[in-house]
Amino acid sequence: MSDTPPRPVPVDPRLLEILVCPLTRTALEYDRVHDELISRAAGLAFPIRDGIPIMLADEARRLDDA
């Protein structure tokens, strides 16, 4: 799951305006290469699948696994 290739569906930039980390409520960074939303504070990368950010802690990648 962690090696998902970049998706052809681009993320809607409006999503990046309104989303924060669901656990720490801090800002997210968009990783264009992996198509993930990174929460440094939580140490999690939330995947984006088919243009839909999956903001579920269960499905996020832990950053130290990278």
Partner: peptide
């Protein structure tokens, strides 16, 4: 957006 209503990401 897929999100848990108990941990909203907005």
């Amino acid at each position: 957006i897929a999100a848990d209503e108990e941990f909203l990401p907005f």
